[in-house]
Design a protein around this nucleic acid. Structure first.
Lengths: 197, 197
DNA sequence: TGTACATCAGTGAACGCGCGTTCACTGATGTAC
DNA sequence: TGTACATCAGTGAACGCGCGTTCACTGATGTAC
């Protein structure tokens, strides 16, 4: 039953990615290792050939999830003209599609409270990705002083994470959508062109 | 061992309040009923004399937690002069004390992701309290048009919840504090300096 | 190069443990007369 | 009013179940000669 090194590496990656989705969908404490393994097409006994503990999987799954979210936002920005990049990023993050698919979305929004309770190593890795996200928000902001634009990006990240979480909790559909819309308009600033999907 | 009606009501309230704190400290899925009951000074067997299920306790604990947070913010506002009330509310919410004591703080910030995954009834009750919080942020905002100030309050709530969550995740102490500080300055600044399309 | 053996990815059963929930029991409270 | 009985809050043990983790086993892969 032994698998080739290539297959082993591929399986490991598949477990991490499956876990990243399941954790975001059902929470870390709400997801069992057997759930993850069977969703990855394996039996749960094999888990410890790849990871030392659930804790290790949590750390890797959280960083993998955030890397993929940042990648997605970066790619969206690259596909837009220079002046429209920040708008593209914020629109994608604060979209109803993102709200409705937590399993493929931002891990901080889906798991924020749980991540705040994990060990320091996981939180340090998440902090690193958070800084990358803030950098991304800053990169396409054309306000001149760097300190000012960093401040803005920090606040923008807070508003985006908070709005997505609130939009997922709220049972009133119209309210949920107005949270997303107003957060987006606010982050982009009413000075720039209003209106866009 | 039967207790008087008054004692029974008191015990029930104690269980709800203990649960509200434990859930915010360790997460809903991370807190067992036995944990809650023993923290309330009881054995776990008696739980079902008061509640039909854990789900029911979760609903009551979440609303109780939010009610107490709103009460605390309202009282802080009442102790401040007219023009300083919003500042008082935002400062208290975005304080390091709030960041460091999730068990006594905002349930949306501590449990946002988990609440988003609970049943509709709980989320409806939380939505109701969220609207009260938004109302509170709006009440002491002196910008004239009601629609505009509602929009602002919605965004302020998002920023506050997001900033508190991020400040709890981040391992860099200075970064954690600058998230809180900049979010606070931004929320208060954009309220006293109105600009809109 | 081919062969013999060690390695180890994955299986499936099992471990102790804590979960939410149930239940027989207790004795003080509440109620009917 | 006092007395007899029904109610039920709380206890402590038990239920089945799923959790994270371990382990003997398998057989294909990797390696040493």
């Amino acid at each position: 039953m032994r698998k080739s090194k290539q297959e082993t590496a591929h399986t490991r990656r598949r477990i991490v990615e499956t876990a990243a989705a399941e954790f975001r969908r059902n929470g870390i404490a709400g997801t069992g290792l057997a759930d993850v393994m069977s969703a990855a097409g394996l039996t749960h006994g094999g888990f410890y050939r790849h990871f030392a503990s659930k804790e290790q999987l949590v750390a890797e799954a959280c960083t993998a999830a955030l890397d993929s979210t940042i990648d997605g936002l970066e790619n969206a920005a690259l596909g837009a003209p220079q002046g429209q990049r920040l708008r593209k990023i914020v629109s994608q993050y604060l979209s109803t599609a993102h709200r409705d698919e937590p399993g493929e979305g931002c891990a901080v929004a889906a798991l924020g409270g749980e991540i705040a309770r994990t060990d320091e190593r996981t939180r340090a890795a998440v902090t690193d990705r958070l800084l990358k996200l803030i950098d991304l928000l800053q990169r396409d902001d054309d306000s001149p002083p760097a300190a000012e634009s960093k401040r803005r990006a920090l606040v923008a990240a807070s508003t985006m994470v908070g709005a997505l979480i609130l939009s997922r909790i709220v049972t009133d559909r119209a309210l949920s959508e107005s949270i997303l819309r107003h957060a987006k308009e606010h982050v982009l600033g009413s000075s720039t062109t209003p209106r866009e999907s």
